[in-house]
Structures are given as structure tokens and as C-alpha cells.
Design a protein around this nucleic acid. Structure first.
Lengths: 145, 145
DNA sequence: TATGTCAGTTACTACGAGGTAAGTAGCATG
DNA sequence: CATGCTACTTACCTCGTAGTAACTGACATA
């Protein structure tokens, strides 16, 4: 009935940006920009890689492959390239044989790690509450069915 | 999402949990638990829905469908059910015709919103830096090609 | 000459997330 | 009696993500 496309057309009228308190974006795209940024950054491998680098400082490719649990070479490369492009890590190639490539967080990368710290802390504090809520939801008495 | 079982074999040596500062988990699964929690929570539609509810308080289904830009009915329902099961929102059905269903954040949901606030703030502050980094990466002089 | 090392790249493939659209319930209104 | 409203559910199908595994390059060592 209301497919996404027609919904998108509808939201061209800037409903999202008419926040009632008036503290919304200076220009209509800020929200979108921020959302894209978060979507980009809130990726599984990116987060795990960020954590590994944050904890251990400088790391080589194979060290990261061991630390980031379950990552494939392909995804690790992809993730690191992306993080490099976004300015979160520096990639230092030492032209020796066998190759030696070192990855380190930039200031931007470190600040991202700090920002995610509160989410991390939140998860530590609340994962039990979520588990409880899930159980309660499952056991929940159903009026009809 | 995390099949990666064959890769897990490799990481039998608990490298991840031997954090050098010794401030790591009391038991080896905390890290995993927290990561799963974050992976669950750091979902596009969940984040956008969370934001909409955080900003506007109580909302009906169609209001959410308008506010959460680009979401399909299917995904909105799915997201809301999940958030309800996880204890982030309450779902109130008013038995009237036509149906009226209202969604509100729980305390847990609001605390999640607060935790993500720092990431949100970070994104607001740094999306320009990321954009700059991307341009720099693209324009970057290549030694060989 | 063969084998190992590190840091990838590439081709092939499969799975599943998610989009689209139609169906459902129950009553109110024209 | 047909259409519309709200809040979904369901079936179908596509497209992208990511896993697997083999291959590369340049040299060092046995």
C-alpha cells in the first residue's frame, strides 16, 4: 500500500527536519549525512578492527587477522582499505621481503574509538537486561492466538 | 551474519582475551556477548527508529513510517518487533477501528539513545573530516601503477 | 630447484537481507 | 455494496555481501 518509493516522495516534504523544538539541522542534509556516517562506521569488521588497534597500538596484517576473530583476508583487506580511505588508520608499507605492512589508528580513528566507548559500556551494563527482556517477551501471555 | 565457524577454529588460541593490560573480561565470553549486543543494536533501521522515537516521544505506526525515511512496512514491523522483544520499546494496542498502535521508548531504550548520543555527536563533528580524508585518499599520489 | 613467508588479489559461489506488492480484518462512510 | 482507513502478514524475487580457496610476487633459505 505505502511502498518505500511513494514514502520517499512523501518525505521530500521535510517532515524529518521539522523537529518541533527547532533544534534541528542548519541545513536539511545534516541528518542524512550523520546517518550515513554512522551506517558506515557501525560495521562489524570496522568496529572489531578499531577495537584491536585501539588496544594494541600498531599491528601488522597477520596480527590483525588473528586478533579480529573470524575475519577473512578478503574482508580484513577491504575493511582496512575503507578505514584508511576514511582517515581512521594509517597504512605503512616497509619495502622489505617478505612484505611488512603496519596499521595504526589516526587521531580521528582514536576519537571514534572513544565515541564508541559509551556504547561499549552501555552494552556491558545492559546485555543482561536485554536477555531478560527477550525471555519475558517469549514467555509473555498472549491474549489470543 | 556470523557463520565464520571454520575461521573460529583458527582463533582457538584466545588471543583476543589476553589483553595486555589485564583489564579484560572476567570470563572469555563477555567480549563476544558485548559484540553481539552491539551488532544487534547498530542496525540501520533500529538506529533510525530509535532516533525518531527519542525525538518525538510516542508515535503511531504510520507516523514512524513517515519519519523513518525509506523504510518499508515490512522492515518497520520487523524492527519494531525486535526492539520490543529486546525491551527498547513498548507497544500499546488500542482496540479501536481503524486500529491504533502506539510505540514509546522504555527506560532501556532511552539509555541506549543516550549511549549512541556520543557517536551521533562524533559523527556531527567529524563527517567533514571523513569527507576530506576520502578526497585526499582519492587524489593521493600513487608511487606505482 | 623447491619451499616458505607476508600481504594481499581474484574468481566463484551461496546465503539471506530486504524490496515489492498483494492480501487480511473490521467497521465507517458515501 | 464498494471503497477506505490502519496496521499489519505473506509470498515472491532480486541483488549484494561475504565466505572459500586458489593464485601472485619477490626474495631467503635448505
Amino acid at each position: 500500500m505505502a511502498p518505500a518509493k511513494s514514502a520517499k516522495k512523501k518525505s521530500k516534504a521535510p517532515l524529518v527536519f521539522q523537529s518541533p523544538d527547532g533544534k534541528s539541522s542548519p541545513h536539511p542534509d545534516l541528518d542524512t549525512l550523520v546517518q550515513q556516517t554512522i551506517a558506515r562506521v557501525a560495521d562489524k569488521w570496522t568496529l572489531l578492527t578499531l577495537e584491536a588497534l585501539d588496544q594494541h597500538g600498531t599491528l601488522r596484517f597477520t596480527q590483525l587477522a588473528e586478533l579480529v576473530d573470524g575475519v577473512s583476508q578478503k574482508m580484513l583487506t577491504q575493511t582496512l582499505r575503507q578505514m584508511e580511505a576514511d582517515g581512521f588508520v594509517t597504512r605503512t608499507v616497509h619495502p622489505v621481503i617478505p612484505p611488512k605492512v603496519e596499521y595504526t589508528l589516526t587521531a580521528l580513528g582514536r576519537s571514534l574509538g572513544e565515541a564508541f566507548c559509551s556504547v561499549w559500556t552501555w552494552a556491558e551494563k545492559n546485555y543482561k537486561a536485554i536477555e531478560k527482556a527477550r525471555v519475558a517477551y517469549r514467555e509473555r501471555p498472549r491474549i489470543s492466538r
